[in-house]
């Protein structure tokens, strides 16, 4: 499944990275602890989080994540958005809380993180 299908199905807002929505998604991870994401997410994952500050961008770059999904309708901070555009990181926003966002992703078949 690619990002654009996820955007459509979960009715996500695309904050940046419109041009990269064809990217395939390998799985997902949910956490607000950055070192946990660094340790336990895998390349091509979507990462659902409450964190909106600029440091989430480096995590996505280093782990080659497919996209960051901000939950609870959050929007990225201004410098986060700027940095994400610079580094070609896709940021999406979900109106649902983390648990429900993950549940919906699971229903779509985005299961394990590998």
């Amino acid at each position: 499944m690619n990002l654009s299908e996820i955007v459509k199905n979960l009715d996500l807002v695309v904050c940046c990275g419109e041009e990269k929505l064809q990217q395939q998604v390998t799985g997902g991870y949910v956490s607000d602890l950055l070192s946990d994401v660094i340790a336990n997410s895998a390349a091509g994952n979507v990462w659902a989080t409450m964190q909106v500050h600029v440091n989430i961008v480096a995590v996505a770059v280093l782990k080659e994540l497919a996209a960051i999904i901000l939950v609870q309708g959050r929007s990225p901070a201004e410098d986060t958005l700027r940095k994400a555009r610079e580094e070609n990181v896709t940021i999406l926003s979900s109106k649902l809380p983390a648990y429900e966002t993950a549940g919906r992703l699971y229903e779509l078949g985005i299961g394990s993180r590998k």
């Binding site: 440091n55 480096a58 782990k63």
Partner: peptide, 30 residues
């Protein structure tokens, strides 16, 4: 905290350009 992550991101790019194995690059990046 705004600059944070810059060195690791650059090092990752450099290692890729040097043709280092992807698995090693990922471990170094972390």
């Amino acid at each position: 905290f705004v600059q944070a992550g810059t060195a690791s991101t650059k090092i990752k790019t450099m290692l890729k350009e040097l043709g280092i194995d992807g698995g090693v690059v990922r471990r170094v990046a972390i």
